[in-house]
Simulated assay, not measured.
Amino acid sequence: MTMLTFAYPWLALIAPLPFAVWLLLPAHASNRTGLRVPFFDRLAALSGQSPQVGGVIAPRRTLPLLVLILCWLLTVAALARPQWIEPPLHQDRPTRDLLLLVDLSGSMDTKDFVDASGRTVDRLTAVKQVLDDFLSRRKGDRVGVVVFGDAPFVLVPFTTDLELSRALLRDTVVGMAGPRTAFGDAIGLGIGLFDRSTVKAKTIIALTDGNDTASKVPPVEAAGVARDRGIVIHTVAVGDPTAAGEDKLDEGALKEVASTTKGGFFRALDRSQLAEIYQRLDQIETRKIDTVSFRPKRDIYWVPLAAALSLSLLLQALRTLRRRSQHPAPRTSDLAISKGAP
Score class of each variant (00 low, 15 high):
Gln129His: 12
Gln129Pro: 02
Val130Lys: 04
Asp132Leu: 04
Asp132Gln: 06
Asp133Val: 12
Phe134Ile: 14
Arg137Pro: 15
Arg137Trp: 10
Arg137Asn: 14
Arg138Glu: 04
Lys139Met: 15
Lys139Leu: 15
Gly140Glu: 10
Asp141Leu: 03
Asp141Asn: 03
Val143Pro: 15
Val143Leu: 13
Val143Asp: 12
Gly144Asn: 04
Val146Leu: 05
Val147Pro: 02
Phe148Pro: 00
Phe148His: 00
Phe148Gly: 01
Phe148Lys: 01
Pro152Phe: 01
Pro152Arg: 01
Phe153Trp: 09
Val154Glu: 12
Val154Pro: 14
Val154Gly: 11
Leu155Pro: 05
Val156Ser: 10
Val156Asn: 09
Val156Gly: 03
Asp161Met: 05
Asp161Glu: 08
Leu164Arg: 08
Leu164Val: 05
Ser165Gln: 08
Ala167Leu: 15
Ala167Trp: 13
Leu168Phe: 12
Leu168Asp: 12
Leu168Arg: 12
Leu168Val: 12
Leu169Gly: 07
Leu169Lys: 04
Arg170Gly: 12
Arg170Glu: 14
Asp171Gly: 08
Ala177Cys: 03
Gly178Ile: 07
Gly178Asn: 09
Pro179Val: 06
Thr181Trp: 02
Thr181Ala: 00
Ala182Asn: 03
Ala182Lys: 02
Phe183Asp: 07
Phe183Met: 08
Gly184Phe: 00
Asp185Gln: 03
Asp185Cys: 01
Ala186Trp: 01
Ala186His: 02
Ile187Pro: 03
Ile187His: 02
Gly188Pro: 14
Gly188Asp: 11
Gly190Lys: 04
Phe194Met: 08
Phe194Pro: 11
Phe194Asp: 07
Asp195Gln: 13
Ser197Ala: 04
Lys200Leu: 14
Lys200Arg: 15
Lys202Cys: 06
Thr203His: 10
Ile204Asn: 07
Asp209Phe: 09
Asp212Pro: 00
Thr213Cys: 02
Ser215Glu: 06
Val217Arg: 11
Val217Ile: 13
Pro218Gly: 09
Glu221Gly: 06
Gly224Ile: 09
Val225Trp: 14
Ala226Cys: 08
Arg227Ile: 03
Arg229Val: 08
Arg229Thr: 06
Gly230Asn: 01
Ile233Met: 03
Thr235Asn: 06
Thr235Cys: 08
Val236Cys: 02
Val236Ser: 03
Asp240Trp: 02
Asp240Val: 03
Thr242Phe: 11
Thr242Val: 10
Ala243Asp: 09
Ala244Ser: 10
Ala244Pro: 14
Glu246Tyr: 10
Glu246Gln: 11
Asp247Lys: 11
Asp247Pro: 00
Lys248Ser: 05
Lys248Gln: 10
Leu249Met: 08
Asp250Phe: 06
Ala253Leu: 12
Lys255Cys: 08
Glu256Met: 07
Val257Ser: 10
Ala258Arg: 02
Ala258Ser: 06
Ser259Leu: 14
Ser259His: 13
Thr260Gln: 11
Thr260Arg: 10
Thr261Ala: 15
Thr261Asn: 13
Gly264Leu: 14
Phe265Gly: 06
Phe265Ala: 07
Arg267Leu: 05
Ala268Phe: 02
Ala268Ser: 02
Leu269Met: 08
Leu269Asp: 09
